[in-house]
Design a protein around this nucleic acid. Structure first.
Lengths: 225, 225
DNA sequence: GTCTGTGAACGCATTCACAGCA
DNA sequence: TGCTGTGAATGCGTTCACAGAC
């Protein structure tokens, strides 16, 4: 947080899609800042950002404008400031601790995935209900019994949970997470979860994603993008 | 495909979100049809579908109406017919063969994931560029050299590809896939791919999904759902 | 001249309300 | 009466166009 930019975080009605796009900008700008060209250029225009992200430049300006005025007319946006601003907007600087439940195939893959650490996420706890898995380690984290998850979450004040259990166990896991104080859930189980309004759930159903592609195949490129 | 329902597949301007919702309906109805209640009830109303999917009933009726008239006023939709109709709309009945490139953590997890087979998807080929992996098996499929992917895809007429390689290799993999005839790509690499207009790419960036949740945490439940 | 920031215009998707049919 | 199917209304998000700053 730099302090001399005012980030307006109070406006209502910010499109969900805006957050998604800004997150992509954030990722692409960090990569850009590491390249030769990125190290040379102090500023970047919205149309240059458009080139590296694939998002159109009008949209980028609009998205940023929801949060404040960060650019200079005639020159563009200061690259490093912009990265820090995006960090603040997206909450990158605050704690990003995660608990994960379900030490199966997908769970294990996520735990070993390097991308998390790179983006500042840390998996603090892994849980399962399979007695033969409890006590074993994945990476350097021990798998704990799902029974103790609520107190674990509460004690460490963790707010984000990832669910990678089978569909029929997912609702119960979600309930435990929410009871412990989790506010955001990334759910990989192919099921529609029920949850209170103050919790946010993001479900990634890989088969559903594939089916969207199949629909595209069977109908040609006619669906709105 | 039953034949006595006319599925209007020619209308333009079908929202992308409609396909996503219908896919969720499809999954939930198949589960429903297996339950005691589902076996008893021959028909299901849009508000009952709403209960099991979490999608509102107006939306469900509207989404189905894009494709034809499948319900009966006063009673609802015949469950099994509806499932078949959704299969046709979503293209479930046609071939759903897949090639996957990148036998790392996420790739392996997807290959072992049972959900694919359940929903009719079959992984026909696995590719990697790491010589130490080539020739080894995951499940019952051998890992092949990425160099032969184009002819493999062409010979088997495969249209769907999954990319689970690191970001810096993803574009090249996508190019090979497209050259071989792939029309739809599910991309797990955190990078914005370039591709021709006749190809559809669906990128799942797990860190981006998490960042959306972090934003929700840091700003409270104010973003549009 | 260049490029941002923004109100206004547009278009798309969701919600509503009710006509029409069983 | 119950529930679908659908035009109409609403609301949201994207695109446009240009005023304003550098």
């Amino acid at each position: 947080m730099r302090g001399y930019h005012t980030i307006n975080n109070n406006k209502k009605n910010i499109p969900q899609a805006t957050i998604h796009r800004l997150s992509i900008c954030h990722r692409c700008l960090e990569v850009f800042a590491e390249t030769a060209r990125g190290r040379k250029l102090k500023t970047i225009s919205s149309s240059e950002i458009s080139e590296i992200t694939g998002i159109n430049s009008h949209q980028i300006r609009k998205d940023l404008a929801y949060f404040g005025k960060f650019g200079r007319r005639g020159t563009g946006y200061p690259v490093h400031d912009l990265i820090n601003i995006l960090k603040s907007i997206l909450g990158s600087s605050q704690k990003r601790d995660i608990v994960l439940v379900g030490a199966g195939n997908i769970g294990k893959a996520l735990i070993r995935y390097r991308g998390f650490q790179k983006r500042g996420f840390t998996i603090k706890g892994i849980f399962d209900n399979n007695q033969s898995k409890i006590g074993k380690k994945i990476g350097n984290i021990e798998i704990s019994d799902i029974k103790i998850i609520e107190s674990f979450i509460r004690r460490r004040n963790i707010k984000i949970g990832i669910i990678t259990v089978p569909a029929d166990a997912a609702q119960e896991v979600a309930n435990h997470m929410i009871a412990g104080g989790i506010k955001s859930i990334l759910n990989f189980a192919p099921i529609t979860l029920k949850y209170p309004h103050y919790v946010k759930v993001n479900t990634i159903d890989i088969s559903v994603e594939l089916e969207r592609l199949v629909y595209f195949l069977s109908s040609g490129p006619r669906v709105n993008d």
